[in-house]
Design a protein around this nucleic acid. Structure first.
Lengths: 201, 201, 201, 201
DNA sequence: TCATAAACGAGACGGTACGTCTCGTCTTGTG
DNA sequence: CACAAGACGAGACGTACCGTCTCGTTTATGA
């Protein structure tokens, strides 16, 4: 009878309350049990919203994650501006480090990545989210180019990737510890590579 | 009453055949359906071994993956020696690229990583495997140091990480495409950083 | 503050149209899917009336059936008058037979009976309806008594019951086929019993 | 992996205990809540057998009823032999009466009939059961024919139908009360009709 | 004729039961 | 008599329908 998905037509009052409760419960469940432990039933119980309603609005566990990601995406992200490329990249790497290791954020971040690796819907959300972040972070490189720290034509996104990839690699692939030193080293590598003109488009 | 787990006491004849069949089936299932699609039932059916037997010996899906990983770890890995650091790192990055994108290997590699991220047993196997690879790959950096391409004290493992991390990052985190150009760029970044002495221990 | 149920205060125009549409849709759904397949949602969709309205006015699926029965009860019923008891009873049995086997009426009749067996509201409606029919049919027996075909004091209702019960029995209990021969035999039995004075009050 | 339905290959021990528990629970639930109130969940809870197991073995609520019916069919049924047709038919009618009105049996019997009317599986079971009963009861008529109480060629099954149909009719169709008098009258009608030769094949 | 209350349209939610899918454990009957 | 095969327990998934609630919108109807 209805046109689209529930929650899109009358997004006020109860509907909004329900959505908020479920989102919050999703994040909490992810932080506690990780992606594999995220269940619709668990979220429903925790949020006080009925199972059926969660299925109606979020369809499945991945839908929950996708929605939670949109919530996360809405949060502002402070693009650093320290004055030089090294400092900026270091700041970005440290932000990522925090996202991966902070007791509160870490499990959620990991869950997001795992979800994306196993669900197309979650992947879409995560990738959109990250694309936006990458785009924001690119400003750092563009400023560096303007200052003459890096050659024109430098691939800003690639610089950022080099700066943060080793952190993700350690967390998700090799399971090695990550710390500030690791973040700084990765950032430094990226800065050097950018300066050397290795990362031009 | 046996001491250890089944399959450890009489590792000949049928026991060995069963193990081989299950390992092969596991890899095939991983290649076809990925990590999320790996089920004990599926492996049992494909291998012709009974469900119960699989549970007895491998305990759960992650156990299957851990075992399959050991199989993969046994395969020889050709450490490149092209004569200079850039070439060696590029060769390594391209090997990793193949492992991630090859139609046959890709799904299995991805499954291994996902499994490790969600199961302690799989993680142990994968991390041991990668540690060994990293150790082998370190040889190229040590040779570069000996040739004077990089300063003494360069952290060999870190160089390799910088060289391959962007590939994993793209595949597992941002879902961006990976190609030879990406591999080469990542390798070049690592070489530059190593030369610049940013990656000393 | 309304007095009674909706539809009682302003029974004109739209209200009447809604009622008619729902009744018709109910009968059609019953004919198509039977009692077990009758859903408020289905009736609402078919009638073009909104779910909520159906619930408001008819309360639940049984309410729909009860209402549809009242509609059926309003239809005139031709009490036969063939001149003798045998012929009258046979005519009645054949009417019942049609009601049970006719492609259009059969499913609805069966649905009514099943509904009555599972819902007090539907039962009330059906029993009232049948009581009226039984009363009308009793005229046949009374005429027979007046003609001397059956002894005074014959229980008219019981005669009719004996004449039609085997048909219902076959349809609802044993699932055996019913045809004109079965109807005629049942009617004949009732006539014989009535004549023999077995069915006096 | 298995050939047929569960419970057919290893019908001993636990399997048998499970079946017995479920059957008993089914009958109890039917007696308490009737057909409409029979739920797989309820039976599972009452029997102490897990939901999933019930679904595996009985498929759905109708499967439960079909199985319970087979259980009922196994119970011996005392075909009366009073010496004359009237007495025999009266005894049969009274047996049916008990089955319909006894506080313990009544609800179950009604549930069986309702189930049969709404489920092909239950219908098969019930019809097979009743066919067997009808066949047994036919002996009564055959003896009467042998004694000369009824003409040769009398349709034994039809006689029994006439004798019991009014009881079912009252219970399932008109909702009228049934008592011993009603049973006796129905039996008497059948006897008269049989004697009159109305029920020859 | 026109204000007003009745009735309806619409969307969302809580709730019960259904039937399915894996996983992992237990138990039976057979080689 | 061990163990392979069969059956079960456990829990989550996703669906259908029921019935309720809260809004807003239309439309009879009588003053």
């Amino acid at each position: 009878m209805t046109g689209g998905a529930p929650g899109t037509v009358r997004p006020g009052g109860r509907t909004a309350r329900v959505r908020a409760a479920v989102r919050e419960a999703t994040l909490a469940e992810l932080a506690e049990h990780g992606y594999a432990g995220l269940t619709v039933d668990g979220v429903a119980a925790r949020s006080g919203v009925h199972r059926t309603t969660v299925y109606r609005r979020w369809r499945n566990p991945d839908g929950l994650i996708a929605d939670a990601l949109e919530l996360a995406a809405a949060e502002p992200w402070p693009v650093p501006d320290t004055g030089d490329l090294d400092g900026d990249l270091r700041a970005i790497a440290r932000l990522v480090l925090t996202g991966l290791t902070d007791p509160a954020q870490g499990p959620v971040t990991r869950a997001f990545v795992l979800a994306a690796a196993q669900s197309a819907a979650a992947a879409r959300s995560l990738h959109a989210f990250l694309a936006r972040r990458l785009e924001q972070a690119a400003a750092v490189v563009e400023r560096a180019v303007a200052r003459g720290e890096a050659p024109a034509g430098t691939d800003a996104a690639e610089v950022v990737r080099v700066a943060v990839a080793p952190l993700y690699y350690r967390v998700f692939v090799t399971g090695e510890p990550v710390d500030r030193a690791a973040a700084d080293r990765a950032a430094a590598s990226a800065a050097v590579a950018a300066r050397a003109g290795v990362l031009v488009r």
